[in-house]
Design a protein around this nucleic acid. Sequence first.
DNA 1: CATCATCA
DNA 2: TGATGATGG
Length: 327
Amino acid sequence: MGVKLKDIIEPESINFKYLEGRTIAIDAFNTLYQFLSSIRQRDGTPLMDYDGNITSHLSGILYRNASIVEKGMKPIYIFDGKSSQLKKNTVDKRREIRDESEKKWKEALENHDMAQAKKYASRSAKLSPEIIESSKKLLDLMGIPYIEAAGEGEAQASYMVQKGDAWAVSSQDYDCLLFGANRVVRNLTINSNLGNLEFYELKKVLEKLAISQEDLIKMGILIGTDFNEGLYRVGAKTAFKYAKQGKLDESIAKLEKETNQNIDEVIDLFKNPNVNKDYKIKWNKPKTEEALIFLCDEHGFSEDRVVNTFSKLKKLDSSQKSLEDWF
DNA sequence: CATCATCA
DNA sequence: TGATGATGG
């Protein structure tokens, strides 16, 4: 879910042209959840191969990345590492909702209510180890690099933008702004070019609100993050009001007292996140033959489609120098 | 979600 | 040619 900052920050509207030639650090778990929840049939059944393995995520990765690369962007995927103990409540709550949704999905199917079935099926999506492994394998075959975060994927991606190794983070969550990512892209989907491709520049966000990065972190904490419960009935607007009134610290103190949480730990998690600083990024030549075995032979994809889609990946091969590298 | 076929 | 709905795996 992430921190709900939407009500106080205005996105810039951009198009793909703006992202051409840019390295985009994509939050892998965030993206995989989107694919798994939305790439489904009308009754909510995900795409599957003959053996019953879920393949929705492979479909999403294949087609979206081919398009991203064709448009001249350079994607890197960032996978979550070990999640913080502070996130335990959030993780537990999500699992509960998932399990509940799975039951409701089956109930809806028995009642032949397809709309409800689809709704609850999408909420029941979960990332199994097989899904994560097969996603990494496909990225590899496409020549797209991925990195394992030490902790939170968003923290790692944000660090990489700060270092200049990526130009922006792509994630649906606003948490990256708390982690200090200079640039964040939302809604990076193929059909987002007309209208809803959102762009946030942290520096401009802070300037416009006239607050510091630390203020933003504290506001996020008052609203509630994956790592702490927020103050009751405090959303983005109220938190911003507190910032303007100079009441952030007293509100944090109140939160600590009322909910018995150590907020210093949460602030530290955002300011000094656990990140992997030793990573390398390299785009490789796509392995089309191997991909055909993996996707078509093993997972039932159409050969024509895979061949056609892989032909869009040519730009990625860093051994093939592009024009700008020559000058 | 992304692609494809179809229809105006 | 672009909007719409079914299909993909």
